[in-house]
Each structure stands twice: as structure tokens, then as C-alpha cells.
Design a binder for these strands. Sequence first.
DNA 1: TTGAAAGCGTTACCAT
DNA 2: ATGGTAACGCTTTCAA
Lengths: 339, 339
Amino acid sequence: MKKVSIKDIAQHLNVSVSAVSLTLNGKGDEKRISKTTQKRIVEYAQEQNYRPNSFAKGLQKGKSEIIGLVVPNISDVFFSRIARRIEKQAEQAGYDVIFSSTGENIEKESKKIQSMLDRQVDGLIIASCQKNTSDILKLKQNNFPFVLIDRLYPEIETNYVGFDNVGGVSSAVNQLIQAGRKRIGFVTLSMNLGTIRERLDSYLQTMKEHALPVENGFVHEMDYNNDEADMQNVIREMLKKPCNIEAIVFATHFLASEGLRQLKELNIRVPDDVAIVSYGEQKDFDLFEPAITAVNLPINEMGDKAVDILLRNMKETNFSYEQLRLKTELVVRKSCGAK
Amino acid sequence: MKKVSIKDIAQHLNVSVSAVSLTLNGKGDEKRISKTTQKRIVEYAQEQNYRPNSFAKGLQKGKSEIIGLVVPNISDVFFSRIARRIEKQAEQAGYDVIFSSTGENIEKESKKIQSMLDRQVDGLIIASCQKNTSDILKLKQNNFPFVLIDRLYPEIETNYVGFDNVGGVSSAVNQLIQAGRKRIGFVTLSMNLGTIRERLDSYLQTMKEHALPVENGFVHEMDYNNDEADMQNVIREMLKKPCNIEAIVFATHFLASEGLRQLKELNIRVPDDVAIVSYGEQKDFDLFEPAITAVNLPINEMGDKAVDILLRNMKETNFSYEQLRLKTELVVRKSCGAK
DNA sequence: TTGAAAGCGTTACCAT
DNA sequence: ATGGTAACGCTTTCAA
């Protein structure tokens, strides 16, 4: 691309560089550049398709007009949907978005955050692996604008947008109880994430409230990179004595679909033999056999709110912080065995 | 973040700015900076957590080490999976990725591409709306490195990575024919995309080769923003006389799942009454009732190849261009009524 | 009403 | 071996 600089324009029109800069930034009137001069500048700039060099601008202003998005994995629908929303909202405010996937890895997360700071992003939205206390703390101490999504550091006061995991899981468990199930298991991830812990706690709590048993083998924590065999073993164990599970709550949508896959593999009838509920919706859960009951998470809202908070944080100098828990909604389908 | 500049370091250590720059860029030996000086510089830089300002660097070098990714919608799994791959490959080569969604809208696409160029991206990967000839042409004329993915401009010679739509659709149609279906319909999008046209052409061609009828009402082009009602009407028409469709090929995975949804709504038995095949896989198609036969598209490979070509294009000065068609693979499941 | 010039942080060339 | 300095393109303050 041939590039026309502000200097080129100035030279060609025999005006000063500052006149051009001022005019092109809409400060012509304010700074009393004559209408005629302004007109000549604007027209010539247009004609030459002048485009400001964002490096020069950024260098000068110390701002990039970029928001950085750090997530475990952009190809996960959950995060890509959030990304889309963030992009949309950011765009309206004149920001571009740059993203990085961290693979739930702390070193990588740290590197990516650093790299974004090097690029002078004006703010960050982070779904952290939740082991990265040091970076989060550093950001906070430096008063750098950022908001955590989905994953919280309870010991650090920061902006945060998450889901009401407790309410969500309890609505799932309650639904199964209502449908008459008593021996209800919980399949979750072995990750040390607050959001994951909350889900487990809510399951335990809800069972307790109903005086229902949570015996050995009722709860299983899968490795993040679990494979079919793992899930099959887990399901097998839950089904046989002494567990004799009648229902399972899955802590994520992908655990639910993998669970259903293995239940089918083992020729277990869902929901007749085992009822299931997924914490987290997935496209076309209604087309599954059986259609899967799921707790719907307001993903779009998460993206919207995150940007909203971030922008305000970036603007207001003494913004403290804001924390949000978004309400979930149970979508009842066949798999939970509801009457 | 408090920022330490190269100048600060130089002043503190009583050496020149250039010595610091050279050393920190690993050119110390080459330019004969004494080992001791180098050591002092490196240590102090580390201690002060020096981070180069990428704006200054970019301004100076005219390079950003950013690859721009322009897609219709980042929240579409198809594109987010590609994005992840691109990110991965780009990272290994030292590039960050910035993305933009265009919503299949030409004005927006044009704006986004421009904005990326303003940011001085070093290269672009574009899934274009395919109506944006002028921008693509401009990029090409300026010898700017870019590669088109999925969507081709047949009249412009550019880098391109796409799928073998013709082979893919014909494998789908053939499968249905093998399963004994004769009256086979095709539901596609009304978008004027080459990749969409190829799919339709391949359907028509394959039917012709087998001397099978393609009558009025056999082919339907849905609006991109179709809703349930549209799909239900289409299905209804295909089912009744004079169409009496026995099987349907859907041109995209989301058309397929929406189609199945409406077939179920109408209490049509799949595959007994109507067999279906989807062009494009979707997570958990195997769990649907019935499990959906689909043409699997090598998405990861698309991302990999795109970056591969782009990087080479960026490096080699007189790179001409490269076009690739990736082979698809039919995954047979219950929905196609295979024996 | 306009122009000149400093400065943003780096790199790279030219001196010494 | 090392230092000085122009240049990258832009914004903004100060003078005129």
C-alpha cells in the first residue's frame, strides 16, 4: 500500500503539518484553521486516501484503542460466542479486539497477558486459568483496567462477570428430585476453578437440604482432557452397586454429551434408567435422543456486561470495581425424566 | 504499568541508547559491545522488567507482527475453530492475531480490512463475503500478503484454501442413491457464494449422472437468516405431491439440524420416510436422533494451510500464489438410511 | 489564522 | 568497542 503521510499532505498544500493534523482530527474550528484551508486539506486527504498510521498515533498518545481478550480456548463455542459479543460492543465504542488462547496453562496465560500489555492494549478481558494470582494482582496494583469473566479470584477485588452457579446447579438437582429421583450423582471436572467448586458445592448443598444421600462414587471429577474410556468407566461405576445411580448432573455441556454417548454405548435407557441434566446449554440439545435438559447460561449478556464494565473502568479514573452474577435458566426436556 | 524505556536504561548505566538497543536485540556481539557492558545492560533491563514499546518498534520497522483474520462471524464454530488453528500456527512464528467479524456484509468487511491495514498488520486471512472484489483486487495490486479461505474469487488469482465441495456433495448424494433413494432434494442457502454454488452444481451434476429427476421444488434456497417457519414450509412442500421427496441433502450443518428439527416437528420418520445427509459435520451429530450422516470438512487443516501459505507469502518477495482444495470425508450414520 | 518544533520509544547508520 | 543522531508519523504546545 502506498502511504500518504500528514507531512506529504502539508507539503503538497503548502500548509503546516499541524494544520493538517488539527483539521483531520476535527479540531480545525476550535483551533481556528480557516474554512478554506480545512476544505483543501480534507479534500486532498480524501483524494489521496490518507490513513493515519496507528503506530505513530499510539506512540504519541500512549493509547492503542485495542481491547485484549484472553481465554482458555477461542474455538470453544462458549468463548467464541463471548468473543463475538465483546467484539460487537467494543466496535461501537471504537475499539478493536485482539485475542489469545491460553489452553488453561498458567505460563501461557502469563505470556499472553504480557504480550497484550506490550501491545499497549487499553484494557483486558480475561477468563483466567485461575492460578495466575501474580499477574492479576500486578494488573490491579498498576490500576490497569481489566475485567475477569467466568473465573473469579475470590481473594482479589476485581471487576468480575460470572454466572450464578449455585442457583443454576441447584435448579438442576431440584428438577431431578421433583421427577422422583433420589440417588443423584455429579460428574464434574478435576480443575481447581472456583466456578467448578461452586457447582459441586451447590450439588452437595442441595442434596443435603433434601436429606438425600451422597455416597462414595456419587461424585466424579474428570480430567480436563478426559477420553471416552474415562467417561465410560465413571458411568459404569455409578451404575453398579453400591452406587445404583438414578440420575446424573453434568457440570458442563461437553461432559453431558460425552456422558450421554457412553450411556448409550452401555445401552442404558435415558431417562428411564438414568435421568440426566447438563449445566450449560449446547446447540441442538433438543435434537438429541433423548433431548437434554440443561441449565442455560446467559452468554451474550456476559460479553455485553464485561465490555460495559471495562469501558467504564477505562474512562473513570477512580473506578473501584464491580462484580456481577448472571442468573441462569433451566430448560426442561426429556432427559431429566420429568413427568 | 510503570514503563522503563531504553533511554532510561542507557542513562542509568551511562551507556548509549544504541548500545542498549543493540544488546537487547542480540546484536551485541556482532556490533562489538563489550561483554561486560552487555551483561550490565541485560541484567538491569531484566531487573527493571524492561518491555519494548511495540508502537515505537512498529513505527520504526514498519512491521507489526500481527496477522489479521477477517471472518463473517467468529462465534460460528466453523470460524472459531479455524481461528484457533491460525492463532496456534501464528504464535509459533511469533505473530499475534487480531480478528474481526463482518456479518457477511460488504461495507463492514471493507471497513474491517481497512482498519486492519491501518493497524499495519503484516498479512491477512480472509473469509470474504465474496462481493468485495474491489478490496481484494486492491490488496493484490499492492502486493499485500493475504490468503482467502473458504470463499474464492474465481476471477482473481490469489492464495486460497477451500474445500472440495464438488467431491463432498457428490459423495453425499451418492450415498443416498446407494441406499436406494431416487427422489432426492437439496436445501441450500440463497447466498451468492462460490462455495454454495459449487455445492448446488455438484448435486445437480450427480443427479444427472445417475439419470435421476430434479423436478420443480427439489431445490430450495433458504435465506441466510431463515427461521423455523421458513424451513417448515420448505420441508412441507418437498414432502407433498408432486415432489414426494425421499431424501434431502443439506448444504450446511445448521441447515441440516434445523431441517431435522422441522421433520421431527412434522412427525416425519427419518430415515424411513425421508433420509438426510448434512454437508458439514457438527459436534455430537452422532447423538442426534437419528444420528446424522455428514460430510466432514477438514477445518483444522484449513487453518494450518492458510497460515503456512501466508507466512511464505510474507517472506518471499516474489511469491505468486497458491490454491488448495482440501478433501472431505463422508461419515455414514443412521440418517441416510444406509443398510 | 498558521507554523515550528519538541517529543513519544525505537532502530540503524555514521562517527569516533 | 561505543556514542550521537536522524528518522519513523503523529499530536500538541508555544510563538508569531
